[in-house]
Write a protein that binds this DNA or RNA. Sequence first.
DNA 1: GGGAGAAACTTACTTGAGTTATTGAACTGC
DNA 2: GCAGTTCAATAACTCAAGTAAGTTTCTCCC
Lengths: 251, 251
Amino acid sequence: MMKPDHRGQPAVPCLACPLRMKPAFKDKSDEEVRFIQATKLEHRFVAAGTDIIHPGQEDAELYTLFSGWAFRYKSLADGRRQILNFLLPGDLVGLQASLLSASAHGIEALTDVELCTFPRKRIWDLFVKMPALAYEVAWLGSREESLIDENLTSVGQRNASERIAALLISLYRRADALGLVNDHSFQFPLTQQQLADALGLSLVHTSKTWARLRRAGLFAMSGGRLTLLNPRLTARMASLFDRELEPRPLL
Amino acid sequence: MMKPDHRGQPAVPCLACPLRMKPAFKDKSDEEVRFIQATKLEHRFVAAGTDIIHPGQEDAELYTLFSGWAFRYKSLADGRRQILNFLLPGDLVGLQASLLSASAHGIEALTDVELCTFPRKRIWDLFVKMPALAYEVAWLGSREESLIDENLTSVGQRNASERIAALLISLYRRADALGLVNDHSFQFPLTQQQLADALGLSLVHTSKTWARLRRAGLFAMSGGRLTLLNPRLTARMASLFDRELEPRPLL
DNA sequence: GGGAGAAACTTACTTGAGTTATTGAACTGC
DNA sequence: GCAGTTCAATAACTCAAGTAAGTTTCTCCC
């Protein structure tokens, strides 16, 4: 099912990182970027559907997602699964897993994925030598927590339509900040089962509600791309206030 | 409605902090504790039912909860509210709020509460001068995220009884680690409305399910104390695996 | 000790969401 | 070119959870 397409390609030098140019990310001093570049290992490729970090794994590395999508998830003994949040390019992957002794969750590649590896052994080094970067790691951790807070609020308080609206607008905004949105449309690689697992709804109810909102003209899908036809309305449906996404650090 | 009972009392010196003795917390070098003590301001008292940090607040300080319980919450425009997690003594209060530019959530005192204040202006100082403490701040942030992951999994995947069981066992274990459990019983200050907001259920359904589990002998309440009559069974009901709580840093 | 408010608890009823099962379309591999 | 998968869509039925509208029980304050 999987074909990592550039396996073995040499790592992109961080100073010339195409992600870093995007407006989603804060500027960094050359010294900091050089430190990052010196610390990182070669890129790692993971095929769609494969775990990047296994539940319970004890030696998880810290990554930055270079390309593709991933998600963090937690499973119950009987197979029920909750998708906790989605990871897009530039997001840290495995911060919690690399700080705590064992990962309480799994992280799976949603699409084929390319990762920059920041070895967990050197995280401590970063705290000692580069306090500004360490601060940004903590900042990124807090930002991730705030995304999960929003998801928890969705699943706990919003009904099926509102949950879908909230998820769509949140992914739309994040993709937009990365320059992945063209004419209100962006690559949308989720299956309905993954949607259901993220929304805390059954597959059937997700499918029904999804189809209803699509027919109502909220969005359209074709060729794996989703077009949000009315972002303002979508945000209103989710009773989600516009908060501007401020630029974030890229490690 | 509220009477902060020791207002004005001089701060307990951190080196003699009664919390620090508990097995829940890791040992720290004297140097680190002295740094903490030098940085902290006097204690702040907040009465039950009052916000410690307001939603949207931009200058939130960082605290350690010295005594009492609190919770983080997020509200929707129409008044629906999700309680994100509960805070017990020794937990950091307001890490996310003090790192990000504005707090995306509120934090409310559940009981009368006493807080040690770590001024947000000096967080940066801590990253520069005390990398070990900075690392522990990041660690505590990840630990909080992992608690929220668990709550999100509960609300998204478990039914009403399982959610109550999961909440009970989690609070029970945390209280136990702090030495607050006596003979399977501990102070339990939540109203049913707060329970409902945390579980993502309606007040009525919470009340019905709560009463059913109580009648079934899972727990008993009297005088504001809750007795977990069968912790093992409770954990099994929630299909929650026993993970030992490892000692955590206290700041 | 009695009145006012909260909080806890019930009852009766409705509905949103879950379950089970079928079908069809799109893609895979042999 | 057919068999095997995976994913999306829909129908029929059940049930967990929500809503509305109480009553009871505390607590605390005058």
